Computed example of a mutant assay.
Amino acid sequence: MIAHGLEQGRARTLRSSVALHAAMAVGGLIMVLFLIAHMYGNLKVFAGQKAFDGYSAYLRTILEPLLPYSGALWILRVILLISVGTHVYAAFVLWHRSRKATAGGGGWRYETTQNRRGVQRTYASFTMRWGGVTIALFIVYHLLHLTANYIHPGGASSSPYERMINGFSIWWVVLSYAIALLALGFHLRHGIWSAFASLGANTGVARRRHLNQLAYLITVVVIGGFLVPPFSILFGWVGP
């Protein structure tokens, strides 16, 4: 009986809103680390085709022969899929619980000069859900374009460098990329802050201010780093 009770208690804890917030935060932070690494890799386009294609090939040979070809890359993909799945699942369950608890009216938090009704909403927090949907749709397109090479605006190529140059030489491709990154920026800024808050790191006014500044800094660096290559290619600063 005692063991059964402990097991039920652990199950309730894992399903609690606190645990879901923590799981969503950890999954989100793993994705942020991936975005930083991916952004850094994209900047290698400025080193030329040989360097960029070499970097792309290297990702598939990491830890060979300990791991098979693309083994490390697939491990990373699985970790990312688990992180994304956990993040989305936790977000949906928490949103559903909030809707159910408030009859769809949203949560009342505290009054500020900008929010006399007591509902704290920034543009970023208000658009988190639809921003997430926009990002998800863009990721599918992005993978089909630059990773799988199933769609190829500007021309098909077996070279990752040439696929990037061909695609970002077209204005509407760059525009769609910029719009998706704008959505990602709002999601990222609010998400980083929320992740640290969910993990209990926002204790004290000074700590909250520093975490907010960190969230802005990471967002500017990541989004700026992702935007530089496509606009540089579009304006002819990088290319064959």
Rank of each mutant, 00 (worst) to 15 (best):
P240D: 09
L182C: 04
G107A: 11
Q213Y: 11
V93P: 01
G105A: 14
R99M: 10
I75G: 09
I2E: 14
S159N: 11
H38N: 12
F196R: 05
I223H: 06
I75C: 12
L199V: 12
A72V: 07
H38K: 09
A156V: 08
A3L: 11
S83N: 05
S157G: 06
S159A: 09
Q120G: 02
L175M: 15
W95R: 15
A91R: 00
A47L: 14
L182E: 02
G239Y: 05
G41V: 04
Y141Q: 06
L227K: 10
Q8W: 11
P153V: 02
L14S: 14
R209F: 02
G5K: 13
A101E: 14
T86R: 03
A23M: 13
R208M: 09
I82W: 01
I82Q: 02
L6C: 05
A19Y: 12
P68H: 11
V32M: 08
P153F: 01
G106Q: 10
V26N: 02
F186K: 00
L43G: 11
N166Q: 08
F46I: 08
S56W: 12
M39F: 07
N149E: 12
P65D: 06
R129N: 05
V88P: 01
G54L: 04
L184K: 02
F226D: 01
L6I: 12
R60N: 07
R117Y: 06
I75H: 05
T112S: 15
S70C: 03
F34R: 05
I139T: 14
G5C: 06
V221K: 06
A47R: 13
Y69Q: 10
G185R: 07
N212H: 13
T127V: 15
L67F: 06
Q49C: 07
A25P: 02
S16G: 11
T61D: 10
A103V: 04
A25T: 01
A178P: 04
T122H: 11
Y141A: 09
R12C: 06
W108K: 15
R116G: 03
M128S: 07
V18I: 12
T13C: 03
G85E: 11
R99C: 05
L73Q: 13
G154M: 09
I62S: 01
G106T: 08
V220M: 13
W172I: 12
T86L: 15
